[in-house]
Design a protein around this nucleic acid. Structure first.
Lengths: 288, 288
DNA sequence: ATTCGGCGATAACCTGGAGGCATGATCCAA
DNA sequence: TTGGATCATGCCTCCAGGTTATCGCCGAAT
């Protein structure tokens, strides 16, 4: 089987990104001729040209495009494997919890307090992720557990326990036609401008792109759009905004998620503590 | 970022499989001391011991187990990337169609005939897969298009077009209590022995394991179990067997599937031909 | 037209480390 | 104790992959 060393793949990806031998070489901290030779070596080994190049221009061939796409995944897989191994070997490791800023529905301190009571509790590192990639943090081993929202986040390959179920509310500016309603239905929202979430391809919104809830609330305040969110994400409610329950939106669940095959006591212990704190309601909060 | 060369990962996986330096070295075609040193090198680089070893015994540490699991995926990803690149570079490449033996519902010759009429038709290689991994053939680039059965095969990451929708039939031996029925319902099958499919973890059956349809039909003939299958998979019907439509089983669809992001003309052309032949019914068959 | 500058390829050389061989160290079983 | 199986170590070789210097090509500028 013809193979490709990790190093070579890194060189290739760098050049495929830069499309410039000099810059790619700098980025890789090697000299330019080394990169030239490495690329030529790869092309010879695979028996396929990866770049069309003249002294003025470098561009990817179809084969190069294919390798760029799949090679990136392969490199990520290698990195993830290394991370997993290092982590599994470190018995003193901290527990890493990933969540979206503000995405804890006020449960975080209770969770941490409950976990701290576990006999095998470790230090907890809180990681904040972008809007939509918390699941990836879990899958590639950058975090051990995460707070995700079902049914928004992709839970494929993850196990999870529901911490909180809540209805969803439409957030509208104070003067909005729906502001006075006790509740609305999805059909009432037809014609409204909804946000597109940055980095989330499959959104239903058609309006301007927003990166986070704070941005969204701002846009709503100035009347550029409205939003539909789990209630906890918008509380406490800013002045000038009103939220109205959406009767027929499927309820949103805040879930504690982890990689399905991950049977480490580290994870099990946190899950146990989280479930216990859920049953205790706010007691753990008062404890702390 | 600490990395691991593909070669080193291969060495590690070989040893993790064999748990014996001598045998692993033979398998890798290197001398045993080279492997010893390579493994030690890896452990030093990662900062984690991967094997507990004495002169009598070799076993994986938790870190080693993690690396074995994820490292295998990483290696597969690298191989897949290489395959994809080589394939994309070969403009003369054959089109590779994967299907289960007998899993074409008689459409294969029509499909091939229709495709042969395409202006950019290539030679077609037919690959036969095991019972449940045709989707993997597509995902890792070993095949370009495949005939799968919905809702049995996992279509995640794949695009598909339905070629044929058919009901499902219960296959029973001639003397069976249900053999005379014009149709049955799922509830009528309670208490019957259903097969477990080899290599398919999530089956509903509890009986002996079978590897393919032929084996299954044999088991049914001798009265050891019954089966529920798409009708086309059991036709022409062997003597001694009877099939009875199952009224409330969701219908089965034979679909033509390919990797969702794969936009190569090679694939598009075949899909176009397949859809055309579907509209023409059996005309293409008569043509050929 | 000519020159200049940017860029990739080539040439020549150097070196670290991967792998081979021989042998040592260890451990279990007679 | 001895022997054999098994992993580790020491030492040597060799080449893959790095470096610097330089060439050749081509488009842009004067």
């Amino acid at each position: 089987m013809i193979q490709l060393e990790t190093r070579e793949l890194e060189y290739f990806i760098a050049l495929a990104d830069e499309l410039h031998f000099g810059r790619a070489a700098v980025r890789l901290s090697i000299a330019q001729p080394a990169l030239s030779k490495a690329i030529r070596r790869i092309e010879t080994r695979l028996g396929v040209p990866l770049f069309d190049r003249s002294s003025r221009h470098v561009e990817l061939t179809p084969a190069g495009q294919a390798l760029q796409e799949h090679g990136r995944h392969a490199l990520n897989a290698v990195s993830a494997a290394v991370r997993h191994a290092q982590r599994a070997g470190d018995t003193q490791a901290h527990l890493r919890l990933v969540l979206k800023p503000g995405g804890d529905a006020g449960l975080l301190s209770g969770l941490l307090a409950a976990y701290a009571h576990q006999p095998d509790a470790r230090q907890v590192d809180i990681l904040f992720s972008g809007p939509a990639d918390r699941a990836d943090f879990l899958r590639d081993g950058r975090a051990d557990v995460g707070l995700l929202y079902a049914p928004f986040d992709d839970l494929g390959g993850l196990a999870h326990e529901t911490l909180l179920t809540e209805d969803r509310v439409a957030v509208v500016p104070a003067g909005h036609r729906l502001a006075g309603r006790a509740s609305v239905r999805m059909s009432d929202l037809a014609g409204e401008t909804l946000p597109r979430w940055k980095g989330v391809p499959g959104g239903d919104g058609t309006g301007p792109e927003v990166a986070d809830v704070v941005q969204l609330l701002q846009m709503i305040t100035v009347g550029r759009m409205i939003g539909v969110l789990p209630r906890s994400l918008v509380e406490p409610l800013a002045t000038g905004l009103v939220c109205v329950p959406v009767a027929d939106a499927p309820p949103s669940r805040l879930v504690l998620a982890w990689v399905e095959q991950d049977r480490r006591p580290l994870v099990a212990s946190f899950v146990t503590a989280a479930l216990a704190s859920r049953r205790d309601g706010t007691r753990a909060d008062l404890d702390a």
